[in-house]
Design a protein around this nucleic acid. Structure first.
Length: 128
DNA sequence: CTTCTCACA
DNA sequence: TGTGAGAA
């Protein structure tokens, strides 16, 4: 099938499908006319990619991860892939660091919010 | 219909 | 990460 059909069947834009190939997430073969020819398995592959992106993983990580996984039709099953575990641990650490940064941002906002609520409460009050 | 590149949020 | 335009 070519790009228009895959786009229609996955709900992902043709533009985005080309982008995924550029990022190494999809590897369609090329027809003689230069058109991309996708396999049936790419329909589920796209769903997996979407799920992983929605989970917050960057495309580079997903690309490496997909090389270490065998798609049996509906589920992603781990394949023989040395280094994968360390790879996932690194990603886990990256996420933990992001959480830390977001939490300190949250503390800053909490501080400002406390002040804002205190001063707006004072606005309508009669000054004895 | 498809390809690509440039620019941009 | 994802899109739109425009040319081929």
């Amino acid at each position: 099938m070519q790009i228009g059909a895959l786009a229609h069947r996955t709900g992902v834009s043709k533009r985005l499908l080309r982008y995924y190939e550029e990022q190494g997430l999809l590897r369609p073969v090329r027809l003689a006319n230069g058109y991309r020819e996708y396999a049936e398995s790419d329909v589920t592959a796209v769903r997996h990619i979407r799920a992983l992106l929605d989970a917050g993983l960057p495309t580079v990580v997903i690309a490496r991860l997909l090389d270490c996984v065998h798609d049996d039709g509906e589920r992603l099953v781990p394949a023989a892939c040395p280094g994968m575990v360390d790879n996932l641990r690194r990603e886990r650490r990256r996420i933990a660091a992001t959480i830390d940064r977001l939490q300190s941002s949250q503390q800053v906002l909490d501080g400002m919010l406390a002040v804002a609520l205190r001063s707006s409460a004072g606005q309508g009050e009669p000054a004895s």
